Each structure stands twice: as structure tokens, then as C-alpha cells.
Simulated assay, not measured.
Amino acid sequence: MAEHLKDDCLFCRMIIGAVPTLKLLETQYSLVFLDIGPLAEGHTLIIPKYHSNTMDEVPDEYLADILPLAKKVALALGTKDYNILQNNGAIAHQHVFHVHFHVIPKPNKTEGLGIAWSRNEPGLEALKAVQEKILARIQAAV
């Protein structure tokens, strides 16, 4: 198996062809296939051909391939409404610990992704403090 793939990972095994997929597209950096437990017809997964648990661990050249592929899938689905979903970590609802992106059609109110969004309103001063903290971390990383 390639050096950046893992023998015990379901998605890595799909990448090398050891587990069958309903492949839609493939590039040097990504594999695109139908989800076997779709939320709506055409629910698609896009996975980088690089094993990592979370998106922040994936090299940029792999990530740069993802959104153009998601756009192609979204256009091919022909639905006006859709979600692009990517989860990192168990409490963020990640179930397969190989980074993956969902393209989920939303053809009507009942099919597709359902989201309950719990908004907070911390106020401008609290948001400015968060902004400063994040900007400091970004500057430290550069």
C-alpha cells in the first residue's frame, strides 16, 4: 500500500481497489464515489488519496483537488439545493476516520441533510476577542 495510506482503513482500501466502490471520478489526488447509505439520491463522497483523520492534516495539493470535484458532482446532480459536508472528530459526527467530503443533494424538505443549528449571540466585544486569539494563532503558524 502507498506510504500515505493505511492497511486497516476502509477508505484507503477503496483507493487501492481492495474494496469495491461505485466510482464517479478519480484524479491523482482524490476518489469520488456514491455513498452506500445515501441521505438522498446522488449522495457522493470525495476522499483524498492521503490518509489522515482530520482535514488539517491533509497536504494542500490534495485539498485543492476537492472543491473542483465537488462542483462537478453538484452540477451533475442537477439539483439547485445541496450541502457540502465535512466532519472532523467523533463529537463532530465523523464515523470513518479518513478525511472525506459529502456532496448531499437537498431535493426537498425531507430528503438530504437535516440540520438543527443552535446559534449563540456572544456580542461584538466577545467576537473581537475571539478574532484576536485566532489571528495571533494564524500569525504564529506563518
Rank of each mutant, 00 (worst) to 15 (best):
residue 111 E to M: 03
residue 60 D to I: 13
residue 18 A to R: 09
residue 25 L to T: 03
residue 10 L to N: 00
residue 70 A to D: 02
residue 96 V to M: 00
residue 16 I to H: 06
residue 28 Q to T: 15
residue 136 A to K: 12
residue 140 A to R: 15
residue 142 V to T: 12
residue 89 G to Y: 05
residue 87 N to C: 15
residue 31 L to C: 01
residue 71 K to P: 07
residue 142 V to Y: 15
residue 43 H to R: 11
residue 13 R to S: 06
residue 46 I to V: 14
residue 3 E to W: 12
residue 112 G to D: 14
residue 9 C to W: 11
residue 132 E to S: 08
residue 115 I to R: 03
residue 106 K to W: 08
residue 135 L to I: 11
residue 74 A to Y: 04
residue 81 D to Q: 06
residue 13 R to T: 06
residue 128 K to M: 08
residue 112 G to C: 08
residue 119 R to W: 03
residue 18 A to V: 07
residue 17 G to H: 05
residue 27 T to V: 06
residue 3 E to Q: 14
residue 109 K to S: 15
residue 137 R to V: 11
residue 24 L to P: 03
residue 15 I to A: 12
residue 127 L to F: 09
residue 32 V to A: 05
residue 45 L to E: 01
residue 5 L to V: 02
residue 41 E to C: 00
residue 136 A to Q: 11
residue 15 I to D: 01
residue 108 N to R: 01
residue 108 N to I: 04
residue 8 D to L: 02
residue 44 T to C: 04
residue 54 T to E: 15
residue 140 A to T: 02
residue 15 I to R: 00
residue 77 L to E: 10
residue 35 D to P: 13
residue 130 V to R: 13
residue 28 Q to I: 09
residue 103 V to G: 02
residue 50 Y to C: 02
residue 37 G to K: 07
residue 142 V to H: 15
residue 106 K to Y: 10
residue 43 H to D: 06
residue 114 G to E: 10
residue 84 I to T: 08
residue 88 N to L: 08
residue 88 N to F: 03
residue 60 D to Y: 14
residue 51 H to K: 09
residue 60 D to K: 15
residue 7 D to W: 08
residue 65 D to R: 00
residue 130 V to F: 08
residue 112 G to Q: 08
residue 55 M to P: 07
residue 57 E to G: 10
residue 37 G to L: 10
residue 51 H to W: 08
residue 80 K to N: 08
residue 106 K to I: 07
residue 71 K to C: 00
residue 136 A to N: 14
residue 91 I to A: 07
residue 29 Y to Q: 14
residue 56 D to T: 12
residue 99 V to A: 02
residue 18 A to L: 11
residue 50 Y to Q: 01
residue 10 L to C: 05
residue 116 A to M: 05
residue 124 L to E: 14
residue 67 L to V: 15
residue 120 N to Q: 14
residue 5 L to Q: 04
residue 39 L to V: 03
residue 83 N to K: 13
residue 117 W to G: 00
residue 118 S to W: 05
residue 14 M to S: 09
residue 59 P to I: 03
residue 94 Q to S: 04
residue 38 P to D: 15
residue 1 M to N: 03
residue 130 V to C: 10
residue 74 A to N: 07
residue 8 D to F: 03
residue 133 K to S: 11
residue 114 G to A: 14
residue 133 K to A: 13
residue 12 C to N: 01
residue 30 S to G: 07
residue 59 P to E: 02
residue 99 V to T: 13
